[in-house]
């Protein structure tokens, strides 16, 4: 009795088809020549990609989302990695409580966080601004980075850091020369995933976006609500390809299932 067996493999195959169906359909639809959502398309063309190139609101949203995701990733790593170091390596009172505090935001639905941020940011005039969106996304990415990096640091072999200190390395030098280099794959994966988390974040952005600043997922929601043509499919193909590249890179480095799971 090795492996999965034919019955289980077949069942899994059917579910895989269902999982992939929407994505495959979107890709096919992107090359549609029709004016509306018709599947299978009556003809194929690249017209929706050309249309996309001329759609200023969507392109502006792509740029804004990329800017936000970069800032969010950089800031989350900047704040999250030191915090993870302290939580894993330090020995201080209230450490466990603090760990739980940092993980708590992951439990609260983004719908609630988004609402709370809307109520908080409106009087501060931070809604529909770059700083507001960046801070909003960080409520999701910062706890994520802290959790992932705490795990990454704690799975490093204990003795390697001890070895560095017996060889005369000061605590900060141990972190710099041993801990961080060994955690680099995890760090890259963590950065890539928090970029994706921020780039795809929809609900918090919906609460915090406005005419002045609107992210890509928000613009896509607006577009799908109003019209049903394959333009969004063309955009989706580009996003899927970009996501795939990032995911494959991360998988090569650490394994996504491990990175995303507990």
């Amino acid at each position: 009795m090795n492996g999965a067996g034919p019955v289980l493999s077949t069942l899994a195959g059917i579910v895989y088809a269902l999982i992939l169906a929407p994505i495959v359909v979107v890709v096919a639809l992107a090359f549609s020549a029709d004016n509306f959502i018709l599947f299978p398309p009556s003809g194929y063309s690249l017209r929706w990609f050309q249309q996309l190139a001329g759609n200023t609101p969507l392109l502006n949203a792509v740029v804004l989302s990329a800017q936000i995701a970069c800032l969010v990733t950089a800031l989350s790593l900047l704040l999250g990695v030191p915090a993870a170091l302290a939580l894993d390596k330090g020995r201080f009172r209230g450490q466990e409580a603090l760990k739980n505090f940092f993980l708590a935001p992951l439990l609260l639905p983004t719908l609630i966080v988004g609402l709370a941020l809307l109520l908080f940011f409106t009087p501060l005039r931070l809604t529909a601004t770059l700083p507001g969106l960046v801070l909003g996304h960080m409520t999701v990415t910062l706890p994520f980075v802290i959790r992932m990096m705490t795990t990454a640091f704690s799975t490093l072999p204990d003795d390697i850091e001890a070895a560095a200190s017996t060889l005369g390395a000061k605590p900060w030098r141990v972190i710099w020369r041993v801990t961080l280099p060994l955690a680099t794959p995890g760090l890259i994966a963590c950065g890539a995933l928090s970029f994706l988390l921020s780039f795809d974040e929809t609900v918090i952005s919906l609460f915090l976006s406005g005419p002045r600043a609107s992210t890509l997922p928000v613009e896509m929601v607006r577009y799908v609500e109003g019209r049903t043509d394959p333009l969004v499919a063309a955009l989706s193909v580009i996003l899927i390809v970009a996501t795939l590249i990032i995911v494959v890179l991360v998988e090569r480095l650490v394994g996504v299932a491990r990175a995303v799971g507990q």
């Binding site: 994505i23 495959v24 979107v26 799908v224 996003l239 998988e251 996504v256 299932a257 995303v260």
Partner: peptide, 22 residues
């Protein structure tokens, strides 16, 4: 494993659009 959790990594709007087409 990556394919199984793929929907998690693709924007929700994209997947909704796919279901509209299906």
């Amino acid at each position: 494993a990556v394919i199984a959790i793929m929907p998690m990594l693709v924007s929700g709007v994209v997947r909704v659009f796919g279901w509209l087409a299906i």
